[in-house]
Design a protein around this nucleic acid. Structure first.
Lengths: 348, 348
DNA sequence: TTGTAAGCGTTATCAC
DNA sequence: GTGATAACGCTTACAA
């Protein structure tokens, strides 16, 4: 790569000081139009662009934002990232992608990343266990936004959904279809969203005058295998004990349930209705297509980025009274995997 | 964010010069073990990490590699990126993600990116139209690797697959199933891979003693809609004119074909066998599951990164004789959408 | 309005 | 071996 021009070279050629070149480049008002033009001519002629690293060192701040993400082959992550990049490209910021593939990627890695002071803000996608650790950085003033976290709400700015209301909607929908024995396969209970979804499920049952049957509650791990395991447990029972609908805590586990149903020739939705949560890309293509709660992942990425950049803005005033929590609306997507109990009614 | 310690602070506290601190930090051999320890103690006590920006300015090189990618919601992109990050995390490099969402993102954007000198190398995923422009940067010495490009082979280091051989395999497989009237829906012809796939298709027919029928060649655009369009054209003809198998240029178009077949109640694979190309994530979940050629996208990302970093290595010697072209093996994935013409034979 | 010069936090080249 | 000191390329008081 040929040696690059510096601001000094431009200054020499335009016969001005480098301070003037800098002022021209940074659009400072107080500079003679004549000189300005002389400088700009040279700049354009040589297609000069100042060295970012030097600028950032002088300014003490970069135009990079770090994005801490789970492996990209996880569901929903590409969608979120897509939203992030859609916003970023309208700004002068760039994304530094920290993809945490290994389990060992823990706080020490995070420490180094932030100690290097390369990013001026951090977007943490599904931070999980890291949430507590991130908190200490936030306390120290690091602009930070979490997307769809999995912990108790903190004062860290956050973008996500209303898990309680969404689960309530999912369950109500099943009730409305006429189902009464509604099972729930939940995710790991140390996730806040899991607890919220469970609450929403219970509340919907209560409001319908029913009581949540502990026999119909199953523990999964948010992965297809755990969905399979729960489904096998369920369908191993006498058919009289089967639920007539299952609200599965996420789509991945629902895939496992559908797999078991297909293998055991249990008709979905005729024998049992299934509803998931997330609306991952595959869900519309399942056999049968999965009814689920749609999460606006791309929008989450977009809005989280917007929020983060506003926090980085020099004249940003944090609202210490009320933590910033953006809850995006979800919606129910009805597909084939759920149907009314009434055999003659049309599928809604 | 509290003011950070600098190498000067450490030097003062350890009562040495900052040069010594720098030497300790960079593992220079010539430094008294006693001093080394004194410095390291302070460093650890304060969890000191040198400012990356300053280091990079002094060194004249960064530890960032740029990744130029199409929108993340495109098929295969997340898989490639996942491969990239899997390699990157074992190194001291980080990824700067340039996601080109807008059509307008053209050479000028690229110019700025590279003029800023922030990245020490560039990975271009599906560069498409940008390939020519990238070439000029490569000429100027920018370490550059293209993944799965869509242009004539150049001397730019490249990672991809053998499209000719893969198409040959796909077509041969259909022939082997007993099909004789094999149609091909191809992508835009300005892509090199499209031409290669067409050649492979033709060669396989030729080698089987058949001649490619121009009536059975269709022009698509690599997107589901174009697949639908071609399928509608095909099935609008008298049934006697139908092909008994279709080799579709990529999975996305094959999805469109399957859609039309389902809508028109044309049995796949009984009435017509379908084979795609790519093995995108959805392909295994189509109705019916799509037979296709699997491309090792994650591996492509991994190997491209490895190659790029080796090129960035200071003691890298370019081989001007022979351009670096890594061709990764593909393989045929047989699923339900293809079957033997012989009605009584088992599906292979 | 413009130029001079002092940072920004490192690394690297010198002498010592 | 170690410590001054000059880069690295830019921004920004402060002077002029």
């Amino acid at each position: 790569m040929q040696k690059k021009l510096t601001i000094n070279d431009i200054a020499r050629m335009a016969q001005v000081s480098k301070a003037t070149v800098s002022r021209v480049l940074n659009r400072h008002s107080s500079v003679d139009p004549v000189l300005r033009e002389r400088v700009m001519d040279i700049v354009q002629q040589y297609n000069f662009v100042p060295n970012t690293i030097a600028t950032e060192l002088a300014n003490g701040r970069t135009h990079l934002i770090g994005v801490l993400a789970p492996p990209l082959n996880w569901p929903a992550i590409p969608e979120i990232l897509h939203g992030v990049s859609e916003h970023i490209e309208h700004t002068r910021y760039e994304i530094v992608l920290y993809s945490m593939n290994l389990e060992r990627n823990h706080s020490d890695v995070l420490d180094r990343i932030l100690a290097m002071r390369m990013v001026s803000g951090l977007l943490a996608i599904l931070p999980g266990e890291l949430a507590d650790h991130l908190d200490t950085f936030f306390q120290q003033g690091l602009p930070l936004v979490m997307i769809d976290d999995q912990k108790e709400p903190t004062h860290i700015p956050w973008v996500g959904i209303d898990n309680f209301a969404s689960a309530y909607e999912a369950t109500s929908y099943l009730l409305q279809l006429g189902h009464r024995r509604i099972a729930h396969i939940m995710g790991p209970q140390h996730y806040y969203c899991v607890v919220q979804r469970l609450e929403g499920y219970r509340q919907a049952l209560t409001d319908a005058g029913l009581q949540a049957d502990p026999e119909l509650l199953f523990q999964g791990e948010f992965e297809p295998a755990s969905g399979r395991r729960c489904a096998e447990t369920i369908f191993a029972q006498d058919q009289s004990a089967w639920p007539d609908a299952i609200f599965v805590g996420n789509d991945q586990m629902a895939y496992g349930v559908l797999e078991v149903a297909e293998a055991q020739k249990i008709q979905v939705p005729e024998a049992v209705s299934i509803i998931g949560f997330d609306d991952n890309l595959l869900s519309a293509h399942m056999r049968p297509p999965l009814t689920t709660i749609h999460q606006p992942f791309t929008e989450m990425g977009y809005q989280a980025t917007q929020l983060l950049l506003s926090m980085i803005d020099p004249n940003y005033q944090p609202d210490n009274e009320q933590p910033t929590r953006i809850q995006l609306p979800t919606h129910l997507v009805t597909r084939v995997s759920s149907a009314s109990t009434h055999p003659f009614s049309l599928k809604t």
